[in-house]
Structures are given as structure tokens and as C-alpha cells.
Nucleic acid binder design. Structure first.
Length: 457
DNA sequence: ATATTTTTATG
DNA sequence: ATAAAAATA
């Protein structure tokens, strides 16, 4: 009787799961294992919204495995120690895991390899799980990774993507080893009221609906804030309840301009993964420094707190920041404009903004979050590092009738149309609203400060 | 063949 | 300004 361990990490699904497939093909029994990793839970990376979503994912994964005759084992502690314990409890000869790109994931792989191989257990690290195209699979002639999106997109698009694997019909799990109970999401405190539901079943439901009703309108609708026409699949990609390989095939088979635009966005995710894989330090350090001396001190802290609370006095910024707090999710256009506002207009260190996003985002992901923040801060791969987004222009362009602002900023709910984007221009007692803050900074002052700091004058 | 320079394009 | 590809030495 041969046994293999499948260590689940950011791949909490049964469909299109290469490690699971490989383990089932080569062993009589498998041990599907998830470790609530003390290393992550103590690192500050764990956040209530993601822990709650994770509970959904684990319960659903367990249910899916039980339908197939198996079950999920959940343990808590150091991931390497727990895998070792399972291996000795079951006599497993192989451990399968998905390849990761973060410094943490790579260190985990290294430590697992060391710990297992000295005991004669083989570790198999699988590509094509977290990203469709493995980081490093395509590179430019003179570097180990692409630093510009467009040439990466061309090469990435030309790669053959393997067919998606079906979910297994049956899974045999040895009776012996015990599991902790998976807590319900209700056991997590500090969770956003409007947090989405996790789990593979929910992910597949959303994928089907998206393919039927959302994809076709994606190209023209994806930047419209109030239209909310993005896929909202990002949490499922982050937790791996959906496979990027399957998503790409499903989108391409639907066809059309919407599908093309959507696949392009999936490629941005893979672009950032291949940058981080090549430059793991970019999760904390400037990818390409502009020698910024970001603002600090009490004055800056006050602005940061206004930004976090959605009380900057710039309605579209505040609307997006309040959506983040309420849903644990923010529209992509909102992410760009709020990040641009913090880094360029308030001239605050991108790490402070990135951390706030990680504290709340259900899809908070090291590669996407940190590198998109760097992109907006001008310290990343943006070819125009000094671009500044004007929040009033952004508001009028991407929320032309103001309904996104009215949805999230009740103080302005009575203001009609695009006038909601410039509340300081409103006159008369009907428009006197002392509960909505004055702008924390004049845009011209912010711009001047930024230009001076970057030596642009 | 490989290094260097020029050209092209960049959310 | 700078990355990537193309052209050239």
C-alpha cells in the first residue's frame, strides 16, 4: 500500500489540480492535508477577512473530498513539522505541493525538501497550479524576467496552456490520522460585513455565471465603478478555488473582445508573479528605487488615517476606501486611484498603503498587491513612473453619474449627478453638509510636493 | 557567435 | 526613462 501526501496551500480545489492528480496516479491512498501555518498566522499576513474566507474554502474542500470517499486533514503548527508528522504517521513515500512565488513559499519548499529527503520521502513541486504559465518559463533575451507588460503578454499568449484536468471521481484516504475540526467563518472576529463566500463550489457557480452573463460586457464595462462589471473572481484565484488554466480555457472558448480583455487581465496577474519570483525582495523593497523620502510624522499620519477611514474629502477615493472596509474587496479602478492618491498626492510610502490593503482585502496577495502598489508608486515596472491620477478626473471618468460615490458615501447621497465629485463647489443650505470632510490636501499642493520630491522641476 | 548600438514602444 | 527587439559590428 503506497501513500502520498497532497499538501494544499493556495490551491484549495479538486478540479484541475496537478499535485492531487499526480498523487492519485502514483499511490493507492492519499492524505489531503492543509496546515494552518503558524508561520503565516504570526507574520501579520493573516487577516480576518482571509481567515473567514479560508474557513469556507476548507469546509468546502472537505465536503468535496467526502463526496468522493475521502476527507481533508487539517492541522495547526509549523507546516514543515506537521507534514513530517503526517509522513511518519502514514508512511507516505511522496509529498506533492504546488510551486509558489513568494519568498515565504520558496523557503517553505526548501525546508520541506530538506526535512523530507533526509528521511527518504520525495517532494514533488508542481508548476501550472497557481499560474498557468510557470514563472521563468518565458524570459527576454537579456534578463531572467520581463519588466514590461506588453512584450511579456505577447510571449505569454503564444505559450501552449495544457488542458485542464477533471476533478477525481474517488479519493482513498487512510483511516488512521486525525484532523482538527475546521472552524466556521463565524468563529473569526473582525470580518467585513459584506465579505464574499469562499469555497470551490461557490467559485464554480460564479465562474459559470460570469461566463454566461459577465464576460461579453467586460471590455467596455470593467473600468466603470458603479457598473461593477468585473468578474469578482480574484479571491478564488488567490485561494486557488479556481484554476487559472481552466479560467483561460473557459474564457478563450467563449471568445470575443470581452474574453480577450479578461485574459489580458489574467496575464497581468501572471506578469506580477514572474516579477516576484525573480525578485522576491520586491514584496518589501522598491523594485527600482526613485530615492523617495516619503512623508512621515504626525502630519502624514493624520492624512493616512483619513485615507484609511475614507475621509479624505475626495469622494471617489473615500467611496473606494469604504467599499474596501465593508466588503473586504475593492473595484480594480478604485485600487488604482486610491493607491495613486496615497503615494503621489499624499506622498506616503507605498508599503503603508499595501499593508492596509493586505489587512482588509480578501484577495490580498503578495505578488499582485505589492507589485501593483509599486506600479502606482512609480517604484515598480511602470514605464511612466511619474504619472499622477487626479481623483476628480478619475471620478468623473469612471463614475460619470456619481452613483458609486452615493452608494458608499451616505453624506453625499442627496447630491445628484457628477456634482458629487466636487462637494466643495456645492452652495446653499441644501448642500451644506458639515459631516463630510473638506479635502485633506489641495491637489495642486500635492502635485507640487510630488514633483519637487522626484526632482521634476 | 556574441557584444554593442540603434530603434521602437511603453496601461 | 528604460526595456525589448532589431540591426549592426
Amino acid at each position: 500500500m503506497t501513500v502520498a501526501v497532497v499538501l494544499f496551500t493556495s490551491d484549495l480545489r479538486l478540479h484541475d489540480h496537478p499535485p492531487l492528480r499526480a498523487a492519485l496516479a502514483s499511490s493507492d491512498e492519499i492524505v489531503p492535508l492543509f496546515v494552518r501555518d503558524s508561520g503565516i498566522e504570526e507574520s501579520g499576513f493573516a487577516a480576518p477577512n482571509r481567515l473567514a474566507f479560508l474557513s469556507d474554502c476548507l469546509r468546502d474542500l472537505d465536503a468535496g473530498l467526502r463526496e468522493r470517499g475521502g476527507r481533508l486533514l487539517v492541522r495547526s503548527g509549523d507546516v514543515v513539522g506537521e507534514v513530517g508528522r503526517i509522513v511518519s504517521e502514514t508512511g507516505a513515500a511522496d509529498v506533492h505541493v504546488a510551486a509558489g512565488v513568494s519568498a515565504y513559499a520558496r523557503r517553505r519548499e526548501e525546508r520541506l525538501r530538506e526535512a523530507l529527503e533526509s528521511g527518504g520521502t520525495r517532494l514533488h513541486v508542481h508548476d501550472g497550479v497557481v499560474t498557468a504559465v510557470a514563472p521563468g518559463a518565458v524570459t527576454p533575451a537579456a534578463s531572467d524576467h520581463f519588466a514590461v507588460f506588453t512584450p511579456y503578454f505577447r510571449r505569454w499568449s503564444a505559450q501552449r496552456v495544457r488542458d485542464a484536468f477533471a476533478a477525481p471521481r474517488t479519493v482513498r484516504v487512510p483511516d488512521g490520522p486525525g484532523s482538527e475540526k475546521v472552524p466556521a467563518r463565524g468563529a473569526v472576529s473582525g470580518v467585513s460585513e459584506g465579505l464574499a463566500e469562499g469555497g470551490e463550489r461557490q467559485a464554480r457557480k460564479q465562474l459559470t455565471a460570469w461566463r454566461r452573463h459577465g464576460l461579453a460586457g467586460y471590455e467596455e464595462g470593467h473600468d466603470d465603478l458603479s457598473g461593477d462589471a468585473t468578474s469578482r473572481l480574484s479571491p478564488h484565484l488567490h485561494f486557488g478555488t479556481l484554476s487559472p488554466v481552466e479560467l483561460i480555457h473557459r474564457a478563450r472558448s467563449a471568445g470575443g473582445a470581452g474574453a480577450e480583455a479578461f485574459v489580458r487581465q489574467l496575464c497581468w496577474r501572471e506578469f506580477h508573479h514572474q516579477v516576484l519570483a525573480a525578485r522576491p525582495a520586491a514584496s518589501r523593497q522598491d523594485y527600482r528605487t526613485r530615492h523617495d523620502h516619503w512623508r512621515s510624522g504626525a502630519d502624514a499620519s493624520k492624512d493616512v488615517e483619513a485615507w484609511r477611514q475614507g475621509r479624505t474629502g475626495y469622494p471617489v477615493v473615500d467611496a473606494a476606501m469604504r467599499q474596501l472596509r465593508h466588503e473586504g474587496w475593492m473595484h480594480n479602478r478604485g485600487r488604482l486611484l486610491t493607491a495613486g492618491f496615497l503615494t503621489k498626492t499624499l506622498y506616503v510610502d507605498w508599503r503603508i498603503g499595501a499593508q492596509h490593503f493586505l489587512d482588509l482585502l480578501v484577495d490580498g496577495d503578495v505578488a499582485n498587491n505589492q507589485l501593483n502598489w509599486q506600479w502606482m508608486a512609480g517604484t515598480g515596472t511602470d514605464s511612466r513612473p511619474n504619472r499622477v491620477l487626479n481623483p476628480v478626473v478619475q471620478g468623473k471618468r469612471y463614475d460619470p453619474d456619481g452613483s458609486y460615490v452615493r452608494r458608499w458615501v451616505p453624506e453625499l447621497a442627496a447630491v445628484s449627478g457628477a456634482a458629487v465629485h466636487e462637494p466643495w463647489k456645492l452652495r446653499g443650505p441644501a448642500h451644506d453638509r458639515p459631516d463630510y470632510p473638506q479635502p485633506v490636501v489641495e491637489l495642486a499642493d500635492g502635485l507640487a510636493r510630488f514633483r519637487k520630491a522626484r526632482g521634476l522641476d
